[in-house]
Each structure stands twice: as structure tokens, then as C-alpha cells.
Amino acid sequence: MIVFQWIMLPVMLILTGIFFQKLKHQPLLRTIVMLVMLTGMIFLVFPDWSTILASYIGIGRGVDLIIYLSLLALTLASILLYLRTVDLQKKIEALVRKDALDQALQEKRDDKD
């Protein structure tokens, strides 16, 4: 193994551990992330395997296959992040609106009393 592999492998292992811990309540996402990380580690240790797989599916170079897969993963991650942001925004919106209504109705009740 070359120096780059010695550096990257522990980094990827640590990241895998963090994701495994953080995503314990999201089994589907955890499985997907684990598969992606495992694939990454296999290609890191055995780079030639990516070329074999790329040739098998007609892409040619292993590095191209990895770029395509990375793009796909990034796009999926962006969509998931966007959906989560929208979900959070809606929750904040509901809270702020409820607070405004409650406060106004309380003031109205106080005025009556």
C-alpha cells in the first residue's frame, strides 16, 4: 500500500464509524452510507478492481467509474439535504406562526379581563 492509502483508510474508517453512530435511527440511510463507504474502501485498497468493474460495464477507466458514482452520490446527498432543509423550514414556520397567534389571542383575552 502507498502512503495515500495509509492516510485515507483510517480517515474513511473513522467517517464510517461516525456515520454508523449518527444514523442509528435511520436504518435505510445508514445501510446506503455504509455500502458507499465500504465500496470506497475496497476501491482505495484495490484500485485495479474499479478498472475491472468499469471495463465490465463498458466505461473504460476505473477513475471514470468512481467519478460517475461520486456525482450520483453527491446529487442524492444534495436532494436529501434540500428536503431536510425544507422540512426544517416548515417546522420553524409552524412554530413562529403558532407563537404569533397564541400571543395575539392572549393579549386579546387580557384586554377583555
Binding site: E93, V96, D99, A100, L101, Q103, A104, K108
Partner: peptide, 10 residues
């Protein structure tokens, strides 16, 4: 008037 306040801009 009936004055309602959003604590943050929505």
C-alpha cells in the same frame, strides 16, 4: 388594531 408578530421573517 390586531397586531400579530412573527419573531423571525418568514
Amino acid at each position: 388594531i390586531h397586531l400579530l408578530r412573527h419573531r423571525v421573517n418568514l
